[in-house]
Simulated assay, not measured.
Amino acid sequence: MPQPLPSPVVIITGGSSGIGRCTAGIFARAGWRVGLIARGTPGLAAAADEVRSLGVAVAVAVADVTDSAALLAAAETLEAALGPVSVWINAAGNGVYGRFVDVPEREFRQVTEVTYLGTVNGTRVALSRMRPRNSGTIVNVCSGVVFHGLPLMTSYSGAKAAVRAFGQALRVELAFERSRVRVSTVFPPAVNTPFFAHAISHMGWPARPVPPVYQPDVIARAIFLAARLGRPEMIISGTVSCFALLSRIAPVWTGLVIRRLGVDGQRGPQQTTEAMPTVFAPSENPSGAYGTFGRHARRWSLQVTLRRFFARLSGTGN
Rank of each mutant, 00 (worst) to 15 (best):
S287F: 02
L229R: 14
S179Y: 12
V263H: 04
T273H: 05
G118N: 03
T77F: 03
P277E: 03
E233F: 08
A126S: 12
F309S: 00
P194H: 05
V9G: 01
L261F: 09
V62R: 13
I11F: 05
F310Q: 02
G265I: 03
V101T: 13
G15E: 07
S68V: 15
S155T: 09
I235N: 10
I236L: 02
S301L: 01
G14P: 09
P151G: 01
P6R: 08
R248S: 13
D49H: 12
A45Q: 15
G238H: 02
D67N: 11
P188F: 00
G18T: 09
S68F: 05
R29D: 13
R129K: 15
A190E: 13
V58A: 13
W88N: 11
L152P: 01
S68W: 03
R248W: 10
L36D: 05
S179W: 12
R29I: 00
L245M: 08
C22N: 10
C242R: 14
S135E: 15
R298K: 15
G83M: 08
D64I: 08
A48E: 14
A227F: 10
F147N: 01
V111F: 01
V60D: 07
A57M: 07
P269R: 12
S287P: 00
A169G: 11
A75I: 01
